[in-house]
Computed example of a mutant assay.
Amino acid sequence: MNVLAIDTATARCSVALCTGSGNGQRMQDSSGRHSSLILGMIRELLCNREMTLGDLDLVAVDVGPGSFTGLRVGVGIAQGLAYAAGLPVVGIGSLAALSGAYPQQTVIPALDARMNQVYWGVYRAGECIVQPHVDDPCRLESELASLSLPDTPMGIGNGWTAYPDSMPVELAGRPLEIRGEHLPEALQIAQLAASVGPAERVSPLGLEVAYVRNRVAEVMSGGAGTPES
């Protein structure tokens, strides 16, 4: 299966192309410049493999949670390309993509949601056991303690390093291993998308974005901080 994947959920954008003959990925730190970079990165990947959109079987994209503007850029491009080529699309969550880096472990992916909050969830061996939601960092310790996880999970994502004084450093007396350098990548999204069944593939116009935070405007009206960009 030939899968083109796009990730624009954070300040780093990436695109990946997974085919039967190998995988390729382009990645760049590009805060605020996703829309000016993504199409060129896609064109480069396809040209290097001497492929066109017509050679693809599927388009995959990070549907969040993440940057409000970034998600709209990535999803819009994925929808446009898939619609033009008559392809189905698959939306993969950013936290699921993060957890894909450690498919055999219990992980707590967390991304900086701005406004002194993080997007987080819990995944065990690739299965989501706590759905992605947004929370204050200081609340994670008590919420995680209530889960009675059987093993010591790993914390991954920049949410862990964005608020080091508020995020937990141990769970039930066991120190957490933190990998704060990880961000979602298009290659993980492509690999996850290739494994989903036909029922999870939708038409371009049927793609839904998991913003999670639905009250950004309301929070902003109270002067709480800067919205996701």
Results as ranks from 00 to 15, higher is better:
C13N: 05
T8I: 01
M41P: 02
V196H: 05
S195M: 15
D62M: 09
I108S: 01
S94W: 08
L147G: 07
L187Y: 03
S166H: 12
G206M: 11
A210L: 10
L149N: 00
E228L: 11
T69W: 00
A110C: 10
L147P: 02
H34V: 02
S195P: 03
S221E: 15
V209L: 00
G22Y: 08
D62L: 07
V169L: 13
S67M: 10
C47Y: 04
D29N: 10
A217C: 00
R213D: 03
I178F: 03
L140S: 02
Q28V: 15
L187M: 10
T52D: 05
R33I: 02
I6W: 03
M41T: 10
A78G: 00
A113K: 10
L140D: 04
M220R: 14
P103V: 08
L46H: 06
E218V: 13
S14H: 11
L149M: 00
S94R: 12
R33N: 10
L53M: 13
L71W: 07
D29G: 04
G76R: 03
D165S: 15
A199P: 01
V122E: 10
E143A: 13
V61I: 09
I108H: 02
V196Q: 07
V202K: 12
G86K: 06
V90T: 04
D55M: 01
E218F: 11
S195W: 13
I108D: 02
G100T: 06
T226N: 12
V75Q: 09
C128P: 03
N48A: 11
A60P: 02
Y102A: 07
Q79T: 05
G126L: 06
A199G: 06
E177Y: 07
S203K: 06
C13T: 11
V61G: 03
S67H: 03
P168T: 11
G40L: 09
A11R: 13
E44S: 12
I38A: 03
N48Q: 12
R215H: 13
L56I: 14
W160P: 01
V134W: 01
G173Q: 07
G225L: 06
A9H: 03
V130Q: 15
L111T: 04
G24F: 09
A96H: 08
R124N: 09
N2W: 15
L147Q: 08
A145I: 07
L87T: 11
Q28M: 15
A162L: 11
V130M: 14
A113I: 08
G100Y: 09
L81T: 05
T106M: 11
V219S: 09
G121K: 14
V118W: 12
A16M: 00
S67Q: 08
M1F: 11
P150A: 15
